[in-house]
Design a protein around this nucleic acid. Structure first.
Length: 515
RNA sequence: GGCGGCGUAGCUCAGCUGGUCAGAGCACGGCACUCAUAAUGCCGGGGUCGGCGGUUCAAGUCCGCCCGCCGCUACCA
């Protein structure tokens, strides 16, 4: 049986942004999804990268006295390092300034052009010279003096430039059909409804080139034009799959299984992108999932409030795995959530250190001190034993469903149900009392606990790769026996186990701790 | 304004096609235990399921109205 292929993407991050918790969130979620299916035997292609074109980038480069290329080289590296610091197991890192991306954009353009969906026109907008920015008509006001002004009070004038347009208006019905035939194309459902109502309201053609700046992919056979934002940026997903080389080893991953995006860029992925692709005769992605935003301590995250959460600081404070766990456990992936230091510490201290870490410690510590460090073999299993083992065994099928729908919080809640079961089990079975009364029974209880820990550790590797690796080390599980297929083979008894060490270190809440 | 959604225990929320659906976690209180990172386990608390009015043998669960929130309503990634 051939291994199934799965392709997942993060958005490419705009190099003009400073890395914050939102980037971390998206990337970590994709990483967990990718790792999960890899462990389950799939061949996964996981892509992330940076978006490096546009006027803003050109200006930022100028402001820092660098060439655009040098500037983007530098900032792109920051995102690469962030991914590394979060233990992200991406298979590729795409940059929109790479030659392979230029080739892909040019070819996609040509195909859309050949399909008759591109035409040359004029793009106009209210431009404020003082602000160097375009405004929507709704953002401007016509003063009593007859002067139209932008939101900053700067006078605006109607400016036109030649531009290529994509005939988006022609795709309205076919997009609605796509949504109709693929109910899961846009998730969560609430977002799907928003997109559908947006499309139903009518689509305007889309300006897809600019002549006012040059930092972009040149439009083929149209001197002076560079491709504008989305046609350039979205195409990265195709580029990394080898497009337009359909003999490329990665081309079999297309269409992508899922593009994971923030809710702010959902429309571009769920409307423009499938239209571009269908126009070019390419299959659209199977799914677009829009996740929510984090507020911080109840407030919107913003530079002006100075409350932007730098993931690197949080990781330094609590450790990487607890940080990854918190982001996915705290709120359903499609919803907004509030990031609080208190909540983070609580998840670390209670869920991880007390409930899980301590379960491992009391089990393995007991083995170390009472059985000469050798994991006992099980004797006859009682009903109580079986109940716990069955609960742990039920986790894999349940988690497959939850992870596939990005319900990380539910997947983790399920695992914690088993952890709580195990804590109740050990209290009920009292191996410390069995030590003298019934050593054989004690051995069985310890084995059942160790086997439960093994299952938990294997299944939680995607969320906490390092820590679960350490737990598996402590259980004497070799690196070759850590994928989901290994769940079918119970832990052999009679093995010496290494000296156990605590999995998580608690961090005490300090009074008046700010950001 | 238009379209969509939400309002269930102090907090965060589950409750699909109407009849053990009045629940979970946290917080709080009591008890037990002491193998363990003073960790864990057990028990408990009664909230008019936003308001009013309908449909029905039966409504958080359907319909109407009202009140209060929120999201989307295109060229910034």
């Amino acid at each position: 049986m051939p291994r199934p292929t799965r392709y997942i993407t993060t958005p490419i991050y705009y190099v003009n942004d400073v890395p914050h918790i939102g980037h971390a969130y998206t990337t970590i979620a994709c990483d967990v999804w990718a790792r999960f299916w890899r462990l389950d035997g799939a061949e996964v292609f996981f892509l992330t990268g940076t978006d490096e074109h546009g006027q803003k980038v050109a200006k930022a480069a100028e402001a820092s006295g660098e060439s655009p290329q040098a500037f983007t080289d530098r900032v792109s590296q920051t995102f690469r390092e962030l991914a590394r610091s979060m233990n992200i197991a991406n298979d590729d890192f795409i940059r929109t300034t790479e030659p392979r991306h230029y080739r892909a954009c040019e070819e996609l353009w040509r195909r859309i052009h050949a399909a008759g969906d591109l035409y040359l026109g004029e793009y106009g907008g209210w431009y404020a010279v003082r602000d160097e920015a375009f405004y929507r008509e709704s953002e401007t006001t016509l003063g009593e003096d007859g002067v139209r002004r932008g939101p900053t009070g700067a006078p605006v004038e109607w400016v036109k430039e030649p531009s290529w347009f994509f005939r988006l208006s022609a795709w309205q019905e076919r997009l609605l059909e796509l949504y109709e035939r693929n109910p899961d194309f846009i998730q969560p459902t609430s977002r799907r409804n928003e997109v559908i109502s947006f499309v139903r309201a009518g689509l305007e053609d889309l300006s897809v080139s600019r002549t006012s700046f040059a930092w972009g992919v040149p439009v083929p056979d149209s001197p002076g034009h560079v491709m504008y934002v989305w046609l350039d940026a979205l195409t990265n997903y195709l580029t990394a799959a080898g497009f337009p080389d359909e003999t490329h080893p990665r081309w079999r991953f297309w269409p992508a299984d899922v593009h994971v995006v923030g809710k702010d860029i959902l429309r571009f992925h769920a409307v423009y992108w499938p239209a571009f692709l269908m126009s070019a005769g390419l299959p659209p992605p199977k799914r677009v999932f829009a996740h929510g935003w984090w507020t911080v301590e109840g407030q919107k995250m913003s530079k002006s409030l100075g409350n932007v959460v730098d993931p690197r600081e949080e990781i330094a404070r609590v450790g990487l795995d607890p940080f990854r766990f918190f982001l996915l456990r705290e709120i359903p992936f499609g919803q907004d959530g509030d990031f609080t230091r208190r909540g983070l510490l609580k998840r670390l201290n209670v869920d991880l250190a007390n409930e899980f870490g301590n379960l491992a410690q009391r089990t393995l510590g007991f083995v170390a001190r009472n059985t000469g460090g050798v994991l006992p073999s099980p004797d006859v299993l009682s009903e109580d034993d079986r109940a716990l083992l069955d609960a742990a065994a039920g986790l894999l099928p349940a988690m497959r469903i939850e992870i596939e729908r990005f319900a990380f919080h539910a997947a983790l809640e399920g695992a914690w149900q088993v952890i709580r079961d195990a804590n109740a089990y050990i209290d009920r079975e009292k191996p410390w009392a069995l030590r003298k009364e019934d050593p054989v029974r004690m051995g069985t209880v310890l084995w059942v606990l160790a086997e439960t820990l093994r299952r938990l550790a294997i299944l939680l590797q995607p969320v906490m790769p390092d820590t679960m690796g350490r737990l598996l080390d402590q259980l004497g599980v070799g690196t070759e026996a850590r994928d989901f297929a290994a769940l079918a083979h119970p832990l052999p008894g009679g093995r010496p186990l290494p000296q156990p060490e605590p999995l998580f270190r608690k961090v005490e809440e300090t009074v008046g701790q700010g950001g």
